[in-house]
Nucleic acid binder design. Sequence first.
DNA 1: ATAGGTCCCGTACCATGGTACGGAGTCAAG
DNA 2: CTTGACTCCGTACCATGGTACGGGACCTAT
Lengths: 145, 145
Amino acid sequence: MVRSQGTKSLPGAELAAAGPLTIGALAAAGGVGVETIRFYQRRGLLGTPTREGGIRHYGQEDVRRLRFIRQAQAAGFTLEEIRELLDLDAGEDRSRARELARARVGALDAKIAELQRARDALRRLASECAEGSTGPCPILTSFDV
Amino acid sequence: MVRSQGTKSLPGAELAAAGPLTIGALAAAGGVGVETIRFYQRRGLLGTPTREGGIRHYGQEDVRRLRFIRQAQAAGFTLEEIRELLDLDAGEDRSRARELARARVGALDAKIAELQRARDALRRLASECAEGSTGPCPILTSFDV
DNA sequence: ATAGGTCCCGTACCATGGTACGGAGTCAAG
DNA sequence: CTTGACTCCGTACCATGGTACGGGACCTAT
């Protein structure tokens, strides 16, 4: 996964913090690969950019969207849900956005609790399976509280 | 996803808590589908069962393994790692088991922290995007602390 | 002018974790 | 003695989220 392919490529695309970005520059700014940008585009997550001479030109808005996508992914939204959220951002359907956010909060609370249980079980396993003790580690029963 | 397909099918496979299980009974006991059992078998997670008359026969040991697989999955292990853990359970390589457990604990701590941040951001979004307020919800910037 | 780096496009491929399909056999009950 | 529920097997297919490939164009520096 080669992410940074150089930000300075097309003339006048590198300086001026608010200047237009090429696809490679946007990818670098978002910490993803060029192919990922095109993939998101196909999925409707990024919207067709302006073209000048066949070359896509992106702005800071796209960088923000890209960062949002990454964070929303980390929050457990699917790309499809993220697409909806991005569409929602432009509109005025507050209730739908709240609905999505609340559902995710619930799912996250459950997931966090689950992961905490798993972590505690594994901590026990790691310590019970310490250097000094004898016999095989109780791996199979490690999650049995 | 039809999970329970009836536990009582083959003669003498239903009563006696420790009696042999058919694939369907094992699947029901583990809360998965029959195809999933065969899939795990192919992946080496369940070990080839004894055959009597071509029919696979499973025991309580397999139920335990199956439960372990589900829990380990919830803990974020891949099926490949779970396969290794199951192999390890039989052997005496304590250090490898500890290594896997500890690595996962670290990953889980990081994941938990990440999910907590995401949850908090979404809680804020849901409340800022409340019924009363005006204008569009600040979805795109919701993760910006 | 030629090589390197980037861009374009479409299509194919990958990993993970299953899920479904079709054809055939076996068994117990109706 | 048929029907239904289960078993067997191999192979194909699915969703998700990318990643790679091949061929062609264009710009910049050497």
